[in-house]
Design a protein around this nucleic acid. Structure first.
Length: 577
DNA sequence: GCCGTTTTCGGCCCGACTGTTTTCAGTCG
Protein backbone atom coordinates (compact mmCIF):
# COMPACT_ATOMS: atom_id res chain seq x y z
CA UNK A 1 0.00 0.00 0.00
CA UNK A 2 1.36 3.35 -1.03
CA UNK A 3 0.81 6.10 1.52
CA UNK A 4 -0.98 9.19 0.27
CA UNK A 5 0.78 11.44 2.76
CA UNK A 6 4.26 11.43 4.21
CA UNK A 7 4.88 11.63 7.93
CA UNK A 8 5.59 15.34 7.83
CA UNK A 9 2.20 16.01 6.26
CA UNK A 10 0.47 13.70 8.72
CA UNK A 11 2.18 15.44 11.64
CA UNK A 12 1.14 18.83 10.24
CA UNK A 13 -2.52 17.75 10.16
CA UNK A 14 -2.37 16.50 13.74
CA UNK A 15 -0.75 19.76 14.85
CA UNK A 16 -3.46 21.71 13.09
CA UNK A 17 -6.08 19.60 14.83
CA UNK A 18 -4.47 20.45 18.17
CA UNK A 19 -4.78 24.17 17.43
CA UNK A 20 -8.38 23.79 16.26
CA UNK A 21 -9.33 21.81 19.35
CA UNK A 22 -7.75 24.48 21.51
CA UNK A 23 -9.65 27.27 19.78
CA UNK A 24 -12.86 25.31 20.21
CA UNK A 25 -12.14 25.03 23.93
CA UNK A 26 -11.73 21.25 24.01
CA UNK A 27 -10.03 19.29 26.77
CA UNK A 28 -6.44 20.62 26.98
CA UNK A 29 -5.08 17.10 27.49
CA UNK A 30 -6.68 16.00 24.28
CA UNK A 31 -4.94 18.93 22.64
CA UNK A 32 -1.64 17.84 24.09
CA UNK A 33 -2.20 14.26 22.96
CA UNK A 34 -2.46 15.52 19.37
CA UNK A 35 0.64 17.70 19.68
CA UNK A 36 2.53 14.83 21.21
CA UNK A 37 1.46 12.33 18.56
CA UNK A 38 2.49 14.74 15.79
CA UNK A 39 5.96 15.07 17.25
CA UNK A 40 6.39 11.34 17.78
CA UNK A 41 5.30 10.57 14.22
CA UNK A 42 7.75 13.09 12.76
CA UNK A 43 10.54 11.20 14.46
CA UNK A 44 9.57 7.70 13.32
CA UNK A 45 11.83 6.32 10.60
CA UNK A 46 9.54 3.43 9.72
CA UNK A 47 6.04 4.86 9.99
CA UNK A 48 4.72 3.09 6.89
CA UNK A 49 5.95 -0.26 8.06
CA UNK A 50 4.45 0.19 11.54
CA UNK A 51 1.09 1.14 10.06
CA UNK A 52 1.23 -1.78 7.64
CA UNK A 53 1.60 -4.26 10.49
CA UNK A 54 -0.85 -2.39 12.73
CA UNK A 55 1.97 -1.86 15.23
CA UNK A 56 1.74 1.91 15.52
CA UNK A 57 -0.16 1.51 18.77
CA UNK A 58 2.98 0.08 20.38
CA UNK A 59 4.66 3.49 20.04
CA UNK A 60 4.53 5.53 23.23
CA UNK A 61 2.22 8.51 22.78
CA UNK A 62 0.08 6.83 20.13
CA UNK A 63 -3.08 5.17 21.36
CA UNK A 64 -5.88 3.34 19.66
CA UNK A 65 -7.66 6.44 18.37
CA UNK A 66 -4.50 8.11 17.06
CA UNK A 67 -3.27 4.96 15.33
CA UNK A 68 -6.58 4.73 13.52
CA UNK A 69 -6.39 8.40 12.49
CA UNK A 70 -2.89 7.98 11.10
CA UNK A 71 -3.91 4.88 9.19
CA UNK A 72 -6.88 6.70 7.67
CA UNK A 73 -4.64 9.60 6.68
CA UNK A 74 -2.16 7.28 5.00
CA UNK A 75 -4.81 5.38 3.12
CA UNK A 76 -7.11 8.21 2.06
CA UNK A 77 -5.06 11.38 2.51
CA UNK A 78 -7.94 12.81 4.57
CA UNK A 79 -9.41 12.52 8.01
CA UNK A 80 -13.13 13.04 8.77
CA UNK A 81 -12.36 14.30 12.29
CA UNK A 82 -10.00 16.89 10.81
CA UNK A 83 -12.56 17.97 8.24
CA UNK A 84 -15.22 18.32 10.91
CA UNK A 85 -12.96 20.59 12.96
CA UNK A 86 -12.13 22.70 9.91
CA UNK A 87 -15.84 23.14 9.21
CA UNK A 88 -16.36 24.53 12.68
CA UNK A 89 -13.72 27.25 12.32
CA UNK A 90 -13.48 29.84 9.52
CA UNK A 91 -10.29 29.33 7.47
CA UNK A 92 -8.44 32.56 8.35
CA UNK A 93 -8.77 32.01 12.08
CA UNK A 94 -5.97 29.46 12.13
CA UNK A 95 -3.40 31.97 10.96
CA UNK A 96 -4.05 34.25 13.93
CA UNK A 97 -2.42 31.71 16.27
CA UNK A 98 0.91 32.69 14.73
CA UNK A 99 0.73 36.23 16.13
CA UNK A 100 2.72 36.35 19.38
CA UNK A 101 0.46 37.23 22.29
CA UNK A 102 -2.60 35.89 20.53
CA UNK A 103 -3.55 32.45 21.78
CA UNK A 104 -6.53 30.17 21.40
CA UNK A 105 -8.64 31.85 24.10
CA UNK A 106 -8.21 35.31 22.65
CA UNK A 107 -8.87 34.00 19.16
CA UNK A 108 -12.12 32.47 20.36
CA UNK A 109 -13.23 35.74 21.96
CA UNK A 110 -12.27 37.78 18.88
CA UNK A 111 -14.10 35.42 16.62
CA UNK A 112 -17.24 35.05 18.73
CA UNK A 113 -17.55 38.67 19.91
CA UNK A 114 -16.23 40.70 16.98
CA UNK A 115 -16.48 38.16 14.17
CA UNK A 116 -12.78 38.59 13.42
CA UNK A 117 -11.66 35.68 11.29
CA UNK A 118 -8.30 36.66 9.78
CA UNK A 119 -5.04 38.43 10.59
CA UNK A 120 -6.00 41.27 8.26
CA UNK A 121 -9.32 41.80 10.04
CA UNK A 122 -7.56 41.61 13.38
CA UNK A 123 -5.17 44.34 12.29
CA UNK A 124 -8.03 46.52 11.08
CA UNK A 125 -9.98 46.00 14.30
CA UNK A 126 -6.95 47.06 16.36
CA UNK A 127 -6.44 50.21 14.35
CA UNK A 128 -10.16 51.03 14.75
CA UNK A 129 -9.81 50.64 18.51
CA UNK A 130 -12.39 47.85 18.62
CA UNK A 131 -10.41 45.52 20.89
CA UNK A 132 -9.99 47.89 23.80
CA UNK A 133 -13.68 47.55 24.66
CA UNK A 134 -13.60 43.78 24.76
CA UNK A 135 -13.61 42.02 28.13
CA UNK A 136 -10.14 40.76 29.01
CA UNK A 137 -8.59 43.04 26.42
CA UNK A 138 -7.41 46.62 26.78
CA UNK A 139 -5.47 49.37 25.11
CA UNK A 140 -2.08 47.78 25.70
CA UNK A 141 -3.16 44.40 24.41
CA UNK A 142 -4.41 46.09 21.29
CA UNK A 143 -1.15 47.94 20.75
CA UNK A 144 0.86 44.77 21.35
CA UNK A 145 -1.16 42.80 18.86
CA UNK A 146 -0.74 45.53 16.28
CA UNK A 147 3.01 45.59 16.79
CA UNK A 148 3.26 41.80 16.76
CA UNK A 149 1.33 41.57 13.49
CA UNK A 150 3.88 43.91 11.92
CA UNK A 151 6.70 41.84 13.40
CA UNK A 152 5.07 38.61 12.23
CA UNK A 153 4.93 39.91 8.68
CA UNK A 154 8.55 41.03 8.78
CA UNK A 155 10.09 37.96 10.45
CA UNK A 156 7.73 35.07 10.07
CA UNK A 157 10.56 32.68 9.45
CA UNK A 158 12.64 30.74 11.87
CA UNK A 159 16.37 31.24 11.82
CA UNK A 160 19.30 29.18 10.63
CA UNK A 161 21.40 27.77 13.44
CA UNK A 162 24.49 29.50 12.03
CA UNK A 163 22.91 32.97 12.30
CA UNK A 164 21.42 32.35 15.74
CA UNK A 165 24.54 30.73 17.18
CA UNK A 166 26.74 33.59 16.07
CA UNK A 167 24.35 36.20 17.52
CA UNK A 168 24.03 34.22 20.75
CA UNK A 169 27.79 33.88 21.17
CA UNK A 170 28.19 37.63 20.74
CA UNK A 171 25.60 38.25 23.46
CA UNK A 172 27.30 35.78 25.80
CA UNK A 173 30.67 37.41 25.30
CA UNK A 174 29.16 40.86 25.93
CA UNK A 175 27.46 39.64 29.13
CA UNK A 176 30.64 37.91 30.24
CA UNK A 177 32.34 41.29 30.57
CA UNK A 178 30.14 41.94 33.64
CA UNK A 179 32.06 40.74 36.68
CA UNK A 180 28.87 40.30 38.73
CA UNK A 181 27.77 37.48 36.43
CA UNK A 182 28.85 34.12 37.80
CA UNK A 183 27.74 31.75 35.04
CA UNK A 184 26.28 32.38 31.60
CA UNK A 185 25.25 29.94 28.87
CA UNK A 186 23.21 29.51 25.74
CA UNK A 187 20.16 27.31 26.38
CA UNK A 188 17.07 26.42 24.35
CA UNK A 189 16.89 24.71 20.98
CA UNK A 190 20.17 26.36 20.06
CA UNK A 191 21.95 24.38 22.77
CA UNK A 192 20.15 21.28 21.57
CA UNK A 193 21.48 22.11 18.07
CA UNK A 194 18.15 22.01 16.31
CA UNK A 195 18.50 22.67 12.57
CA UNK A 196 16.57 25.93 12.81
CA UNK A 197 15.57 27.95 15.85
CA UNK A 198 12.86 30.42 16.73
CA UNK A 199 14.83 32.48 19.21
CA UNK A 200 17.88 32.65 21.45
CA UNK A 201 17.66 31.64 25.13
CA UNK A 202 20.34 32.86 27.52
CA UNK A 203 20.79 31.95 31.17
CA UNK A 204 22.76 33.89 33.75
CA UNK A 205 23.48 33.44 37.45
CA UNK A 206 24.12 36.40 39.72
CA UNK A 207 23.28 37.67 43.17
CA UNK A 208 19.74 39.19 43.37
CA UNK A 209 21.04 42.71 44.00
CA UNK A 210 22.72 42.75 40.57
CA UNK A 211 19.69 41.63 38.55
CA UNK A 212 18.52 45.09 37.62
CA UNK A 213 21.95 46.20 36.43
CA UNK A 214 22.33 43.09 34.31
CA UNK A 215 18.89 43.48 32.74
CA UNK A 216 19.55 47.15 32.01
CA UNK A 217 22.87 46.24 30.43
CA UNK A 218 21.27 43.50 28.35
CA UNK A 219 18.39 45.52 26.92
CA UNK A 220 20.69 48.41 26.00
CA UNK A 221 23.28 46.37 24.10
CA UNK A 222 23.97 47.83 20.63
CA UNK A 223 22.60 44.75 18.84
CA UNK A 224 19.19 45.18 20.53
CA UNK A 225 16.55 46.70 18.24
CA UNK A 226 13.52 46.69 20.55
CA UNK A 227 12.44 45.48 23.98
CA UNK A 228 9.51 43.07 24.01
CA UNK A 229 9.34 42.71 27.77
CA UNK A 230 11.54 43.48 30.73
CA UNK A 231 11.24 42.05 34.21
CA UNK A 232 13.61 41.47 37.08
CA UNK A 233 14.40 37.86 36.22
CA UNK A 234 13.27 37.61 32.61
CA UNK A 235 13.52 39.87 29.59
CA UNK A 236 12.93 39.50 25.87
CA UNK A 237 14.43 41.67 23.14
CA UNK A 238 14.47 41.63 19.36
CA UNK A 239 17.96 41.97 17.87
CA UNK A 240 18.67 44.10 14.81
CA UNK A 241 19.15 40.81 12.94
CA UNK A 242 15.44 40.08 13.56
CA UNK A 243 16.12 37.24 16.01
CA UNK A 244 14.49 37.46 19.45
CA UNK A 245 16.60 36.78 22.51
CA UNK A 246 15.43 35.86 26.03
CA UNK A 247 17.54 36.38 29.12
CA UNK A 248 16.79 34.73 32.46
CA UNK A 249 18.63 35.40 35.72
CA UNK A 250 18.72 33.24 38.85
CA UNK A 251 20.99 32.83 41.85
CA UNK A 252 23.95 30.53 41.31
CA UNK A 253 22.57 27.64 43.40
CA UNK A 254 19.52 27.57 41.11
CA UNK A 255 21.54 27.88 37.91
CA UNK A 256 21.80 24.20 36.90
CA UNK A 257 18.04 23.79 37.23
CA UNK A 258 17.25 26.86 35.15
CA UNK A 259 19.81 25.90 32.52
CA UNK A 260 18.27 22.44 32.27
CA UNK A 261 14.74 23.80 32.24
CA UNK A 262 15.42 26.31 29.47
CA UNK A 263 17.44 23.87 27.41
CA UNK A 264 14.33 21.74 27.10
CA UNK A 265 12.95 20.35 25.05
CA UNK A 266 9.58 20.92 26.59
CA UNK A 267 8.78 17.27 25.99
CA UNK A 268 12.01 16.15 27.64
CA UNK A 269 11.22 18.30 30.67
CA UNK A 270 7.72 16.91 31.02
CA UNK A 271 9.03 13.35 30.88
CA UNK A 272 11.86 14.06 33.30
CA UNK A 273 9.51 15.67 35.78
CA UNK A 274 7.20 12.72 35.59
CA UNK A 275 10.14 10.45 36.32
CA UNK A 276 11.10 12.65 39.29
CA UNK A 277 7.56 12.42 40.65
CA UNK A 278 7.86 8.63 40.64
CA UNK A 279 10.93 9.00 42.87
CA UNK A 280 8.98 11.31 45.18
CA UNK A 281 10.90 14.33 43.90
CA UNK A 282 9.82 17.55 42.24
CA UNK A 283 11.77 19.48 39.60
CA UNK A 284 11.23 23.07 38.63
CA UNK A 285 13.57 25.66 37.17
CA UNK A 286 14.45 26.60 40.74
CA UNK A 287 15.54 23.30 42.07
CA UNK A 288 15.11 19.64 42.84
CA UNK A 289 12.87 19.17 45.86
CA UNK A 290 12.01 16.37 48.24
CA UNK A 291 8.98 17.82 49.98
CA UNK A 292 10.08 21.24 51.15
CA UNK A 293 13.75 20.36 51.16
CA UNK A 294 15.88 21.45 48.21
CA UNK A 295 18.52 18.97 47.07
CA UNK A 296 21.43 21.11 45.90
CA UNK A 297 23.26 20.36 42.63
CA UNK A 298 26.40 22.07 41.38
CA UNK A 299 25.70 21.36 37.73
CA UNK A 300 23.40 19.48 35.39
CA UNK A 301 25.44 16.29 35.73
CA UNK A 302 24.64 16.20 39.43
CA UNK A 303 20.96 16.74 38.73
CA UNK A 304 20.83 13.70 36.48
CA UNK A 305 22.86 11.74 39.01
CA UNK A 306 20.36 12.52 41.78
CA UNK A 307 17.61 11.23 39.51
CA UNK A 308 19.51 7.97 39.17
CA UNK A 309 20.46 8.67 35.58
CA UNK A 310 23.44 9.09 33.35
CA UNK A 311 24.15 12.61 32.08
CA UNK A 312 22.08 13.35 28.96
CA UNK A 313 23.86 15.57 26.42
CA UNK A 314 21.64 18.52 25.38
CA UNK A 315 21.38 17.36 21.76
CA UNK A 316 19.55 14.19 22.87
CA UNK A 317 16.94 15.95 24.99
CA UNK A 318 13.97 15.48 22.67
CA UNK A 319 12.16 12.80 24.69
CA UNK A 320 13.00 10.26 22.05
CA UNK A 321 14.29 7.53 24.31
CA UNK A 322 17.09 9.40 26.05
CA UNK A 323 15.49 9.19 29.50
CA UNK A 324 15.04 5.44 29.28
CA UNK A 325 18.60 5.09 27.95
CA UNK A 326 20.03 7.25 30.74
CA UNK A 327 18.23 5.17 33.36
CA UNK A 328 19.73 2.03 31.83
CA UNK A 329 23.14 3.72 31.52
CA UNK A 330 23.05 3.26 27.78
CA UNK A 331 23.68 6.81 26.59
CA UNK A 332 26.27 6.48 23.82
CA UNK A 333 29.49 8.47 23.75
CA UNK A 334 28.51 10.91 21.03
CA UNK A 335 30.84 12.09 18.30
CA UNK A 336 32.76 15.32 18.93
CA UNK A 337 34.19 17.91 16.58
CA UNK A 338 37.72 16.86 17.55
CA UNK A 339 37.05 13.31 16.32
CA UNK A 340 37.06 14.45 12.69
CA UNK A 341 40.46 13.70 11.15
CA UNK A 342 39.75 14.87 7.64
CA UNK A 343 37.52 17.08 5.52
CA UNK A 344 35.49 15.61 2.69
CA UNK A 345 33.47 17.50 0.06
CA UNK A 346 35.01 20.86 -0.68
CA UNK A 347 34.73 22.96 -3.85
CA UNK A 348 37.54 25.05 -5.31
CA UNK A 349 37.87 27.65 -8.03
CA UNK A 350 38.06 24.75 -10.49
CA UNK A 351 34.25 24.73 -10.34
CA UNK A 352 32.08 27.12 -8.27
CA UNK A 353 34.33 27.55 -5.23
CA UNK A 354 36.26 30.69 -4.35
CA UNK A 355 39.66 29.43 -3.18
CA UNK A 356 42.37 27.37 -4.87
CA UNK A 357 43.08 23.76 -3.99
CA UNK A 358 46.27 24.79 -2.21
CA UNK A 359 44.48 27.48 -0.18
CA UNK A 360 41.82 25.01 0.94
CA UNK A 361 44.47 22.40 1.76
CA UNK A 362 46.58 24.81 3.80
CA UNK A 363 43.45 26.00 5.65
CA UNK A 364 42.73 22.38 6.59
CA UNK A 365 46.34 21.87 7.71
CA UNK A 366 46.14 24.95 9.93
CA UNK A 367 43.00 23.53 11.52
CA UNK A 368 44.80 20.29 12.31
CA UNK A 369 43.17 17.98 9.76
CA UNK A 370 45.16 15.14 8.16
CA UNK A 371 43.51 15.09 4.76
CA UNK A 372 41.11 16.90 2.41
CA UNK A 373 38.95 15.41 -0.33
CA UNK A 374 38.40 17.89 -3.18
CA UNK A 375 34.94 17.32 -4.66
CA UNK A 376 34.25 19.81 -7.44
CA UNK A 377 31.18 19.54 -9.64
CA UNK A 378 30.92 17.19 -12.64
CA UNK A 379 30.33 18.26 -16.23
CA UNK A 380 26.52 18.24 -16.16
CA UNK A 381 26.63 21.07 -13.60
CA UNK A 382 27.38 23.66 -16.26
CA UNK A 383 25.97 26.43 -14.07
CA UNK A 384 28.73 25.61 -11.58
CA UNK A 385 31.53 25.25 -14.13
CA UNK A 386 31.58 21.47 -13.68
CA UNK A 387 34.69 19.51 -14.73
CA UNK A 388 34.93 17.46 -17.93
CA UNK A 389 37.41 14.62 -18.43
CA UNK A 390 40.22 16.85 -19.67
CA UNK A 391 39.99 19.25 -16.74
CA UNK A 392 39.75 16.34 -14.31
CA UNK A 393 43.11 15.07 -15.55
CA UNK A 394 44.60 18.56 -15.20
CA UNK A 395 43.21 18.90 -11.67
CA UNK A 396 44.63 15.51 -10.70
CA UNK A 397 48.09 16.56 -11.93
CA UNK A 398 47.87 19.62 -9.69
CA UNK A 399 46.79 17.49 -6.72
CA UNK A 400 49.69 15.06 -7.31
CA UNK A 401 52.11 17.97 -7.31
CA UNK A 402 50.63 19.48 -4.13
CA UNK A 403 50.72 16.10 -2.37
CA UNK A 404 54.48 15.83 -2.84
CA UNK A 405 54.93 19.33 -1.39
CA UNK A 406 52.44 19.15 1.49
CA UNK A 407 53.20 15.63 2.74
CA UNK A 408 52.30 14.12 5.18
CA UNK A 409 49.08 16.08 4.59
CA UNK A 410 47.06 14.30 1.93
CA UNK A 411 44.71 15.67 -0.71
CA UNK A 412 42.27 13.05 -1.98
CA UNK A 413 40.85 13.14 -5.51
CA UNK A 414 37.11 13.27 -5.32
CA UNK A 415 34.17 14.59 -7.34
CA UNK A 416 30.58 15.59 -6.63
CA UNK A 417 29.12 13.69 -9.54
CA UNK A 418 25.61 14.58 -10.69
CA UNK A 419 22.95 11.90 -10.60
CA UNK A 420 21.07 12.11 -13.90
CA UNK A 421 17.29 11.90 -14.12
CA UNK A 422 17.34 8.15 -14.80
CA UNK A 423 19.75 7.38 -11.96
CA UNK A 424 22.79 7.01 -14.21
CA UNK A 425 25.89 9.01 -13.38
CA UNK A 426 27.45 11.97 -15.15
CA UNK A 427 30.64 9.98 -16.00
CA UNK A 428 31.31 6.46 -17.26
CA UNK A 429 33.07 4.01 -14.93
CA UNK A 430 36.46 4.56 -16.65
CA UNK A 431 36.41 8.18 -15.49
CA UNK A 432 34.94 7.40 -12.07
CA UNK A 433 37.78 4.94 -11.50
CA UNK A 434 40.24 7.85 -11.60
CA UNK A 435 38.97 9.16 -8.27
CA UNK A 436 39.88 8.15 -4.73
CA UNK A 437 36.26 8.62 -3.73
CA UNK A 438 33.06 9.60 -5.48
CA UNK A 439 30.18 11.61 -3.99
CA UNK A 440 26.93 11.48 -5.96
CA UNK A 441 24.22 14.14 -5.63
CA UNK A 442 20.99 15.26 -7.24
CA UNK A 443 21.02 18.82 -8.60
CA UNK A 444 18.28 18.71 -11.20
CA UNK A 445 14.71 17.54 -11.82
CA UNK A 446 13.34 18.02 -8.32
CA UNK A 447 9.75 17.49 -9.45
CA UNK A 448 9.74 13.70 -9.69
CA UNK A 449 7.34 11.47 -7.79
CA UNK A 450 8.60 9.93 -4.59
CA UNK A 451 8.82 6.53 -6.22
CA UNK A 452 10.84 7.83 -9.18
CA UNK A 453 13.18 9.93 -7.04
CA UNK A 454 13.81 7.01 -4.67
CA UNK A 455 14.58 4.63 -7.52
CA UNK A 456 16.78 7.24 -9.18
CA UNK A 457 18.97 7.56 -6.09
CA UNK A 458 19.11 3.85 -5.35
CA UNK A 459 20.14 3.14 -8.90
CA UNK A 460 22.94 5.70 -8.63
CA UNK A 461 24.21 4.11 -5.42
CA UNK A 462 24.36 0.72 -7.13
CA UNK A 463 27.33 1.91 -9.18
CA UNK A 464 30.36 0.28 -7.45
CA UNK A 465 32.49 3.42 -7.78
CA UNK A 466 30.13 5.45 -5.59
CA UNK A 467 31.43 6.09 -2.08
CA UNK A 468 29.03 8.64 -0.57
CA UNK A 469 25.50 9.86 -1.28
CA UNK A 470 25.58 13.67 -1.02
CA UNK A 471 22.80 15.84 0.54
CA UNK A 472 20.18 13.07 0.21
CA UNK A 473 16.96 15.09 0.19
CA UNK A 474 18.15 18.32 -1.47
CA UNK A 475 16.29 20.44 1.05
CA UNK A 476 17.20 24.07 1.71
CA UNK A 477 16.16 25.02 5.22
CA UNK A 478 13.58 27.83 5.40
CA UNK A 479 13.61 28.01 1.63
CA UNK A 480 12.73 24.76 -0.08
CA UNK A 481 11.55 21.31 0.92
CA UNK A 482 13.58 18.38 -0.32
CA UNK A 483 12.32 16.37 -3.24
CA UNK A 484 9.84 13.73 -2.14
CA UNK A 485 11.89 10.70 -1.16
CA UNK A 486 11.43 7.48 0.73
CA UNK A 487 14.38 8.07 3.02
CA UNK A 488 14.02 4.75 4.82
CA UNK A 489 14.35 2.88 1.53
CA UNK A 490 17.38 4.93 0.53
CA UNK A 491 19.02 4.21 3.89
CA UNK A 492 18.25 0.52 3.63
CA UNK A 493 19.77 0.47 0.13
CA UNK A 494 22.87 2.29 1.38
CA UNK A 495 23.24 -0.32 4.11
CA UNK A 496 22.92 -3.16 1.63
CA UNK A 497 25.32 -1.59 -0.88
CA UNK A 498 27.93 -0.29 1.58
CA UNK A 499 27.53 3.32 0.47
CA UNK A 500 28.06 6.05 3.06
CA UNK A 501 25.55 8.89 3.44
CA UNK A 502 26.55 12.50 3.83
CA UNK A 503 25.48 14.74 6.64
CA UNK A 504 25.85 17.91 4.64
CA UNK A 505 26.93 20.37 7.30
CA UNK A 506 26.12 23.52 5.38
CA UNK A 507 23.68 25.34 7.72
CA UNK A 508 21.25 25.80 4.82
CA UNK A 509 21.04 22.04 4.34
CA UNK A 510 21.88 19.86 7.38
CA UNK A 511 20.82 16.95 5.23
CA UNK A 512 20.60 13.97 6.16
CA UNK A 513 18.16 15.10 8.85
CA UNK A 514 19.05 14.08 12.42
CA UNK A 515 15.90 12.02 12.85
CA UNK A 516 17.00 9.82 9.97
CA UNK A 517 20.65 9.68 11.09
CA UNK A 518 19.57 7.55 13.97
CA UNK A 519 17.87 5.12 11.63
CA UNK A 520 20.90 5.06 9.35
CA UNK A 521 23.35 4.04 12.06
CA UNK A 522 20.92 1.44 13.37
CA UNK A 523 21.08 -0.07 9.90
CA UNK A 524 24.89 0.08 9.97
CA UNK A 525 25.26 2.87 7.40
CA UNK A 526 28.41 4.98 7.70
CA UNK A 527 27.85 8.72 7.74
CA UNK A 528 30.27 11.39 6.53
CA UNK A 529 30.12 14.86 8.05
CA UNK A 530 30.96 17.15 5.13
CA UNK A 531 31.11 20.95 4.97
CA UNK A 532 30.34 21.26 1.22
CA UNK A 533 32.52 24.37 1.56
CA UNK A 534 32.84 26.77 -1.34
CA UNK A 535 35.43 28.93 0.45
CA UNK A 536 37.78 28.64 3.42
CA UNK A 537 35.26 30.08 5.88
CA UNK A 538 32.85 27.28 4.99
CA UNK A 539 35.12 24.67 6.59
CA UNK A 540 33.85 25.63 10.05
CA UNK A 541 30.35 24.45 9.11
CA UNK A 542 31.34 20.92 10.14
CA UNK A 543 30.47 22.11 13.65
CA UNK A 544 26.78 22.21 12.68
CA UNK A 545 27.07 18.79 11.06
CA UNK A 546 28.51 17.37 14.26
CA UNK A 547 25.59 18.89 16.19
CA UNK A 548 23.12 17.18 13.85
CA UNK A 549 25.01 13.89 14.14
CA UNK A 550 24.92 14.12 17.93
CA UNK A 551 21.17 14.72 17.77
CA UNK A 552 21.00 11.49 15.79
CA UNK A 553 22.82 9.52 18.53
CA UNK A 554 25.86 9.15 16.23
CA UNK A 555 29.16 7.92 17.66
CA UNK A 556 32.69 8.30 16.36
CA UNK A 557 32.68 4.80 14.94
CA UNK A 558 29.73 5.64 12.70
CA UNK A 559 31.49 8.48 10.88
CA UNK A 560 33.72 7.99 7.87
CA UNK A 561 35.89 11.05 8.31
CA UNK A 562 36.91 10.13 11.83
CA UNK A 563 39.09 7.55 10.09
CA UNK A 564 42.58 8.04 8.66
CA UNK A 565 42.97 8.82 4.96
CA UNK A 566 44.16 5.26 4.35
CA UNK A 567 41.06 3.79 6.01
CA UNK A 568 38.78 6.05 3.99
CA UNK A 569 40.55 4.98 0.80
CA UNK A 570 40.09 1.34 1.74
CA UNK A 571 36.40 1.91 2.37
CA UNK A 572 36.05 3.36 -1.15
CA UNK A 573 38.18 0.66 -2.82
CA UNK A 574 36.38 -2.19 -1.10
CA UNK A 575 33.24 -1.35 -3.02
CA UNK A 576 34.71 -1.91 -6.48
CA UNK A 577 37.44 -4.45 -5.89
C1' DG B 1 -6.64 11.33 23.74
C1' DC B 2 -2.95 8.72 26.43
C1' DC B 3 -1.43 5.96 30.19
C1' DG B 4 -0.58 2.36 34.26
C1' DT B 5 5.17 -2.31 39.26
C1' DT B 6 -0.40 0.91 43.78
C1' DT B 7 -4.44 2.40 39.00
C1' DT B 8 -8.54 0.42 32.98
C1' DC B 9 -10.38 5.61 35.92
C1' DG B 10 -8.63 9.76 37.03
C1' DG B 11 -5.05 11.84 36.54
C1' DC B 12 -2.07 14.52 32.94
C1' DC B 13 4.82 19.77 34.60
C1' DC B 14 5.67 24.25 36.27
C1' DG B 15 6.39 29.15 36.73
C1' DA B 16 7.27 34.26 34.81
C1' DC B 17 5.35 38.10 32.75
C1' DT B 18 1.68 41.05 30.99
C1' DG B 19 -2.43 43.28 31.18
C1' DT B 20 -6.61 43.69 33.01
C1' DT B 21 -7.84 43.08 36.96
C1' DT B 22 -8.89 43.94 42.84
C1' DT B 23 -7.39 38.15 42.70
C1' DC B 24 -6.62 36.29 37.98
C1' DA B 25 -6.66 34.67 32.93
C1' DG B 26 -3.99 34.17 29.02
C1' DT B 27 0.26 33.33 26.77
C1' DC B 28 4.72 31.52 26.46
C1' DG B 29 8.44 28.40 26.90
Amino acid sequence: MKSKLDKKQIAAILKEMAVLLEILGENPFKVRAHENAARVIEGLPNLEELVARDALISVKGIGEAMAKKVKTLMETGELPAHQRLLEKVPPGVLEMIKIPGVGPKKIRTLWQELNIISVDELEEACSKNLLAELKGFGKKTQENILRNIAQYRRFRERHLISDALQAARELVSALSTLSVIERCDIAGSLRRRKETVKDIDLVVSAAPEHRNDIMNFFVSLPEVDSITMKGETKSTVVLTSGISADLRIVSDDQYPFLLHHLTGSKEHNVALRQHALQLGLKISEYGLFKGEEMLPCNDEAELFQKLGMQYIPPELRENMGEIEAALAHRIPKLIELEDLLGIIHVHTNWSDGVNTIEEMARACMERGYQYLAISDHSQAATYANGLNEERIRQQHAEIDDLNTRLTPFRILKSIECDIMADGSLDFPDEILSLFDLVIVSVHSRFNMSEEEATQRIIRAMENPFVTILGHPTGRLLLARDGYPLNQSKVIEAAARLGVAIEINANPHRLDLDWRMCRYAIQKGVKLSINPDAHRIEGLKDVEYGVGIARKGWVEKKDVLNTWSAEEVLNFARNRHS
